[in-house]
Amino acid sequence: MRRLPVLLLLLGLAAPALAVNPDEMLKDPAQEHRARELGKDLRCLVCQNQSIDDSDADLAKDLRVIVRERISAGDSDDQVRKFVVDRYGDYVLLKPPFRAGTLALWLGPLALFAGALWAVLAFYRRRPAEQAAPPPPPLSAEERRRLDTLLKESER
């Protein structure tokens, strides 16, 4: 039981490891912050579903360093992004740009949702009309007598 606090302390050490090494960081915190934000949107071409900010791959490290070089050289965020896209294409952006080629990507889900909504509405609008059966015929004398006995029984 005495080990528990130690184990809990060790657990604290297991905070998410950062791929960005201290020696890569820029001295100016504002510039470093921009580099981090940019890095989160740039895909690591090796791991493909990680950003360069997350990835430990060598190529991701190179791109982090190069992004920081561009920032130090005075590039704006858009200029840095353009620098990388010029070399790796839109694929490098984790958030693809909205343009003619990506219309299906951006609007596809919306279209599917609209279609589904239309189908559901059509289904419910039609159902009452189709299922509305003719009103049941009135009870016969015999049926009324049985119903009365049943009701009386349940009252007791």
């Binding site: 071409l45 090796v46 190529l59 490290k61 190179d62 791109l63 360093v65 190069i66 070399r87």
Partner: peptide, 14 residues
């Protein structure tokens, strides 16, 4: 040499 500027200019992924 790292950070492989020319390779990045070529759009090298590996």
């Amino acid at each position: 040499p790292p950070p492989g500027r020319t390779a990045v200019d070529f759009g090298v992924t590996g």
